[in-house]
Design a protein around this nucleic acid. Structure first.
Lengths: 194, 194
DNA sequence: AAAAAACTGTACCTTTGGTGCAGTTCTAGA
DNA sequence: TCTAGAACTGCACCAAAGGTACAGTTTTTT
């Protein structure tokens, strides 16, 4: 699975051959097809695993930031800072998001795979929308705001930033963009003297 | 080329067969290989054409918005509004960005193709960074800001929004995210009573 | 009318995804 | 320790796809 994920992130799904995966993983083609009915099944398994690990990462990161500060706005700002640092610190360009790469090749796959994509974006939206709602209850936003849209915005900036980082081969781009999102959140919710 | 672009946007590069393109375009395989050395050459040609047409679109849209308001900040806000409307108005979900889809499959292609990707993002960055610099000269931003990063931000939000719109099959997501970018720009540059 | 460009048809090669299946090795439980 | 079942391996085979080679035909340009 590790081998397959690296290859898929590097080259996309279609360009990753089963032969190459089994060679790198030191198993046989037969062994591969014993575990996975076809490439679709591999895609689903990889996606499931990936989404789970990203969820765990977000859990850890934002749980930690809530430990560091009990105020939801400041916890969020800390969380976004941590996220930015983590993304910018990766040795070379972040390999990219498996969900996004699959999204752009989704017609290769069945409806089930497309569903995994949609529902993972949805769960991330819900997660962040929840955080933002908590914030909004304490710090009324300057302009009325849709929390689902704000939740999507985190996904949006991360996915867009990943593409740019990949194109420029520079992980700092993603880190910068997350900081701009952070700055938007700051301005949106921070109380100003009227 | 039209046929090929639609297919590539829908399914990704690797999943689009030459047979299928030539069938839809009512030419022969031989005819295809007469014009394009290989699939790489097709990718390059498609990308070049796409970047050119996107540039023309941005030119038109932001030239128009400058006609509507001579102040650079307001012209930018109008431009982003127009962009948002255009992206949200597309009949079904926006088919996606050819540059981004190629970006996530770039190892399929040669260095030349990767260069087209990098330089098109770069030219868009420059374009928007220029607009933002003009704005910043008139409206000093609240916090010091890197104009290249702001330029990238437009790319970032559009690319990220395209992915989300595609995943949710709802072009409104992209439109909303562009409006959030617009709102960030507003807050960043609008003078506030101190 | 001649030359060059734009194709077509056919035959062929390789890689890749995928099927089928008989046989082997490993492993957990009675 | 025996044994059932899970986890593999090897091999033969198929179809689809990218790509090559090249001789011949049609269309366009000059």
């Amino acid at each position: 699975m590790d081998v397959a994920q690296d290859a898929v992130l590097a080259k996309g799904f279609a360009a990753t051959s089963i032969d190459e995966i089994v060679a790198a993983a030191e198993v046989t083609r037969s062994g591969f097809f014993y575990h996975f009915k076809d490439k679709n099944a591999l895609a689903r398994a990889l996606l499931d695993r990936y989404v789970e690990s990203e969820d765990a990462l977000f859990d850890e990161l934002f749980d930690r930031s809530r430990e560091l500060h009990e105020d939801p706005l400041h916890a969020m700002l800390i969380g976004l800072k941590l996220l930015s640092e983590m993304m910018g610190d990766l040795p070379s360009a972040h390999p990219g998001c498996l969900v996004a790469t699959t999204c752009y090749q989704d017609q290769l796959f069945d409806a089930q795979v497309r569903d995994v994509i949609r529902s993972s974006f949805h769960s991330w939206r819900q997660r962040f929308a929840g955080y933002f709602r908590e914030i909004g209850e304490i710090y009324p936003p300057k302009t009325p705001v849709d929390y689902d849209e704000l939740g999507d915005m985190v996904n949006c900036v991360v996915e867009g930033g990943l593409i740019l980082s990949r194109a420029y081969d520079d992980p700092r781009i993603l880190a910068q963009q997350i900081l701009h999102l952070r700055s938007y959140v700051t301005m949106l919710f921070s109380p100003t003297r009227q």
